[in-house]
Nucleic acid binder design. Sequence first.
DNA 1: TTGACGTGATACCTTTTGGTATCTATTGAG
DNA 2: CTCAATAGATACCAAAAGGTATCACGTCAA
Lengths: 106, 106
Amino acid sequence: MSAMEHMAFRALADPTRREILMLLKQSDMTIAEVAENFQMTRAAIKKHLTILSDGGLIVTRVEGRARINALEPQGMQHVFDWLSYFDTFWDDRLSALKPAIEEDMK
Amino acid sequence: MSAMEHMAFRALADPTRREILMLLKQSDMTIAEVAENFQMTRAAIKKHLTILSDGGLIVTRVEGRARINALEPQGMQHVFDWLSYFDTFWDDRLSALKPAIEEDMK
DNA sequence: TTGACGTGATACCTTTTGGTATCTATTGAG
DNA sequence: CTCAATAGATACCAAAAGGTATCACGTCAA
């Protein structure tokens, strides 16, 4: 189990961080813009963003004095892979997909 | 966001608990059997199992004086649903599946 | 009934986590 | 240059998390 994988799981454990991810799904934001959506200081939001970054779930690009935070689209990959091992819903989808693939083979 | 969903994410945040889930995927176990796989006390394992249960990821059945812990197959559902919103890999699979479904419709 | 076994529960300790307050550095407008 | 705006860094605090030690409770075998 990679440290990166653990950091991703840890990042997802906090409700505020999950909300931040939902926000960033809508649009990229500076720290201040993210902070506007919560009743806590910018410093606290900054900490959450750092943890999300450590988990590989977001990336930051610099534009002048602004730091734009954006989702890392493939950031969920490790988490998703790990979880899919247990998920029957996922298994059902794969089962449904398999015949279609075999059909394509013909 | 449901409290249940949060408890599931919280349960997954700890490496020991993720290992326990991997163990239970292999076979159902009593608390003592789970504890054999770790270098910590049975009481600590019991706490982890309680948190996993709170998150709906495992269920416990009573057999005499033994408590058998087992995976809750659909326990990952909420977590999986939430994550799938971000996962491009998942989107790719759905995209691949869609033509096959449409083909079935004909 | 008498224990040993498997477990539940509680008190307690240490570390981590989530948060604020505060200070510093860099950028861009005038 | 000056200075407000944006952000990084650190110290500090309260609460939560992870762990141990310990005791109490039901269960099964002898």
